[in-house]
Simulated scan of single mutants.
Amino acid sequence: MRFGFIGTGVITEAIVLGMLKSDYPVDEIVVSARTKSISKRLAKASDKIRICENNADIVNAADLLFLAVLPQDAEHVLVPLEFPPEQKIVSLIATIPIAQLQEWTRHDAIICRAIPLPSVADLTGVTAVFPPLDAAMGLFQELGTAIPANTIEEFDSFAVASGMMGLYFGFAECAAQWLCTQGTDYRGARAYLSTMLLGLANTAFQSPDESYEELRLRHTTPGGLNDQMFRRFVDEGGENALSYACQSVAERIRKNHYSQD
């Protein structure tokens, strides 16, 4: 199977590296020259990867085509291209609805949208796909876990959740800096938190039938330190802050949809 990527950024690199590590059948991967540093790095990784200067050639070469350009560049990049009607397209372009993409590709394209996370490079990613196109689901399942979204509302909610990556590292940095104020050096603080958070993530992953609330209670002694930490977090508005942040991102996504109608 031949894959094409219009747009060669961080997520394209992660997907391609994951494909090379996986057992997924790949005959050729064609990537655009932009960004040159990434495309050249990928080309050195495997002789199955070819750099292409012309986006039209990428379209013609790919059985499964990935759109990975910035939202503000999408119309300018896509409108001049001619897409064969049988081609399958996976859009990685944030916030651009399928109806708009079909207008720019100028035919009834077979398009799905996906939200791959950087960890697909290590085959540990989770990727929401809407609608769950078999070709995309099969690939992303090889790169970790593929989650089918059957409605745009469900897909958008996964998009909101993907926005928590920066929040996660910001939370960890805040905790590390607090440890440093108590006399711990940053390296030690980071090592402790990274190992603890990895352990908690593994516990959740290995306990799929337990809710997060059940896991919290299993890790909490009533009146103990974990209980005090969580109660104070709630009392200081932590839960509300997270809900407000999620709602803010959701409104931004929905506003973009409406502006395209």
Rank of each mutant, 00 (worst) to 15 (best):
F3W: 04
F5C: 08
F5W: 01
I6W: 00
I6E: 03
G7M: 01
G7C: 12
T12K: 01
E13D: 08
V16Y: 00
L17Y: 00
G18R: 00
M19R: 09
P25G: 11
D27K: 14
D27I: 07
V30M: 02
V31H: 02
S39L: 07
R41V: 01
K44C: 07
A45R: 06
A45C: 04
A45V: 02
I49G: 02
R50C: 02
D63N: 15
D63Q: 15
L64R: 11
L64V: 09
L70G: 11
E75Q: 15
V77C: 11
L81T: 09
P85S: 14
L92E: 06
I93P: 04
P97Y: 02
L101V: 04
R106D: 10
R113K: 15
R113S: 11
A114G: 06
P116R: 00
P116T: 05
P118M: 10
P118K: 05
S119W: 00
V120Y: 01
A121N: 05
T124N: 05
T127W: 00
T127H: 00
P132T: 13
L133C: 12
D134P: 06
F140L: 10
F140Y: 13
Q141P: 12
L143H: 10
T151E: 05
I152Q: 09
E153N: 13
A159H: 02
V160H: 03
A175W: 08
G183F: 05
Y186G: 08
R187V: 14
G188Q: 13
R190W: 15
Y192M: 04
L193H: 08
T195H: 09
L198K: 14
N202G: 06
Q206F: 06
Q206N: 12
D209S: 15
E210Q: 12
L215P: 06
G223C: 10
L225F: 14
D227Y: 12
Q228V: 11
M229P: 00
M229L: 14
F230G: 03
R231G: 03
E236G: 08
G237D: 13
E239Y: 05
E239P: 03
N240Y: 11
S243L: 10
S243P: 00
S243G: 07
Y244M: 09
S248A: 15
V249P: 00
R254W: 09
K255C: 03
H257W: 15
Y258Q: 11
